[in-house]
């Protein structure tokens, strides 16, 4: 998926944002600024039809994930004698070959998709953002090891690693990781999360590079703030927008990857209620009971649609040049 291209696009557009702040802001002002920023964003979001539509879908899916236990009308694991039942009041989406309620499984599948992709993206942000910030801010750094001055091209090293990482096409990386370490949830979250690191790192690096030259950074230097302080407490909060956009687009992508792996039989295993795994089982019944293939796939597509619309809308809002209407 071309999320990295998109990300490159976004970061390059964001390079030229005007910023007139000169003084080093205090924590309170920074928080206030972040609050106002989020409020602005919310307002803009409301104005964009597509984005609010996406936000609505995302919200619904999050709620479904949270209240899966309430919404599921049956135990998603419970096998009954009513196998392959058609759609009815009792079974809204029918039942699967083991007599399990498909509605309940789809609802619990939403929880799984959300938890895995959200955990992964949090992991990715936690690792990728500092990495990108360090890479962008420090460039080449000198350290003293055993009394000798050593120039370490930190930026170069990190970016080569990122390039190498990005050269592994598509789903291949995940396939290999799962083949080697197994398809447990922890491995999935780690792999999906780590895979987001390069993109985010590159994105943040770009933003930090452009922020670095601004006056408020120089002001902080003059005041005598430490480099670490400047990077993480002053520059980073100003690079939030691309991170948020990238994260929301990535969640959609991660949900697809998780489902695809389970579909290949490499991630979630039956009887875990997971969309991809359920689709994998359903494919054996395509000819005789096609309904099985429809509902988990619809849920999956709808969720991804939500995150994509939301991400696109956000991008439009955060990058005024892109808005044409």
């Amino acid at each position: 998926m071309a999320t990295d291209t998109v990300a490159r696009d976004v970061s390059s557009r964001l390079l030229n944002q005007e910023d007139i702040r000169v003084e080093a802001p205090t924590l309170v002002t920074r928080l206030r600024r972040a609050g106002a920023y989020l409020k602005d964003m919310g307002g803009e979001l409301w104005k964009s039809k597509l984005a609010s539509c996406g936000a609505f879908i995302v919200l619904v899916m999050v709620l479904v994930a949270i209240f899966a236990d309430v919404l599921a009308r049956h135990d998603p694991f419970n096998m009954t004698e009513t196998a392959l039942a058609p759609v009815s009041w009792e079974h809204w989406f029918g039942t699967d070959p083991y007599g399990r309620d498909i509605w309940s499984r789809v609802v619990h599948g939403a929880r799984r998709a959300m938890v895995i992709s959200a955990s992964a993206i949090v992991l990715g942000v936690l690792l990728g953002v500092p990495l990108g910030a360090v890479s962008g801010y420090y460039g080449t750094t000198t350290v003293r090891i055993a009394g000798r001055q050593l120039r370490i091209p930190l930026d170069n090293i990190i970016m080569r690693l990122v390039d190498a990482w990005l050269a592994i096409p598509g789903i291949l990386f995940f396939l290999l990781v799962v083949a080697i370490f197994g398809g447990s949830d922890l491995v999935l979250i780690m792999a999906l999360g780590l895979a987001q690191v390069p993109l985010l790192a590159r994105l943040v690096r770009g933003s930090v590079l452009s922020e670095k030259t601004k006056e408020y950074v120089e002001a902080s230097h003059i005041i005598g703030d430490s480099n670490l302080n400047i990077t993480f407490r002053q520059i980073l909060p100003n690079c939030l927008s691309p991170i948020i956009v990238q994260a929301s687009v990535s969640v959609g992508f991660l949900i697809i990857v998780e489902a695809a792996l389970a579909f290949l039989g490499l991630g979630a295993q039956p009887p875990t209620p997971a969309w991809g795994a359920d689709l994998n089982e359903a494919k054996n019944f395509m000819e005789t009971y096609p309904l099985l293939t429809i509902f988990p796939g619809l849920a999956l597509s709808l969720t991804v649609l939500g995150f994509n619309l939301f991400g696109d809308g956000l991008r439009d809002i955060l990058d005024p040049r892109q808005v044409e209407q």
Binding site: G252, I256, A260, L279, K283, T293, L300, V304, N308
Partner: peptide, 16 residues
């Protein structure tokens, strides 16, 4: 948007 959103393996199943 449809092309961007629908996971390709599900699209494949639906086409089959």
């Amino acid at each position: 948007v449809f092309g961007l959103t629908v996971p390709n393996f599900w699209l494949a199943l639906m086409m089959i």
